[in-house]
Design a binder for these strands. Structure first.
Length: 223
DNA sequence: CATAGGATGCGCT
DNA sequence: GCGCATCCTATGA
């Protein structure tokens, strides 16, 4: 992927990210994910975008050159990340919503609190008789990066990833060169927004199991 | 399967 | 203060 490609209109850039591989290396190791679901945010004309109301300390990366990572913190506990698109100064970005882990599966499982695999004997029926401690159901590998916040956890990306140039050769987080997905992407409304929820600016690889379930915005009830 | 409620920090009005 | 580009768990079919 060349930077000039990312400098195009965000609605053209977003589907081109499908099938591309994002690789993140930390002291713990390396995890890479093949992107299966993204959403376009077009700051200038898009009430759903964080950049819609102008540049702030939080959104400044989006106003910079394409190919950098915009990471934000939300709901008091989650990080989500975007690839900055469009020409310099036009604050558009592509939210990375889901992917398939293609490298570093064990590390991704550990980061997501996936239980360590037990010896075969542990699963024998004899052991399962009688009362057992109620444990959270282990997520299948399909869910490791299914959803924007999970994707960040699986890749080990937080605040410090904000602003990373994904096309720099020595960057800890890189968008790798590759063929990408060459089929026809599915499209639909974006997930969980209050504003501009109708714009069909979500793109995903059809029938891919790692694509997140659609959840419309639900207004909180008042007292 | 579907729906509902809680957790939680911070950007913005 | 309000509300969020979310996720997890519990509950009922």
């Amino acid at each position: 992927m060349r930077r000039s490609v990312l400098a195009g209109p965000v609605l053209e850039v977003a589907p081109k990210l499908l099938g591309m591989v994002l690789r993140s290396t930390t002291p713990d190791g390396t995890v890479a994910v093949r992107l299966t679901e993204v959403e376009a945010y077009d700051g200038a004309n898009d009430p759903g975008s964080h950049a819609y109301r102008g540049e702030t300390a939080r959104t400044e990366v989006m106003f910079g050159p394409p190919g950098h990572l915009y990471v934000y913190f939300t709901y008091g506990m989650h990080f989500c990340m975007n690839v900055v698109a469009g020409p310099d100064g036009k604050p558009s970005a592509v939210l990375l919503r889901a992917g398939e882990v293609v490298e570093g599966l064990d590390l991704a499982r550990a980061r997501r609190g996936h239980p360590v695999e037990q010896p075969a004997a542990f699963n024998q029926s004899a052991v399962r008789k009688g009362p057992v401690a109620k444990l959270p159901k282990p997520n299948p590998d399909r869910d490791l990066a299914r959803g924007p916040a999970r994707l960040c956890v699986a890749l080990g990306i937080g605040r410090e990833g904000n602003g990373t140039d994904l096309l720099a050769k020595n960057a800890p987080i890189q968008l790798l060169d590759g063929p990408g997905y060459d089929g026809v992407p599915a499209t639909g409304p974006r997930v969980g927004l209050r504003e501009a929820a109708d714009r069909p600016w979500r793109f995903w690889i059809p029938n891919d199991p790692t694509v997140s379930p659609y959840r419309p915005h639900v207004p909180k009830k008042r007292a």
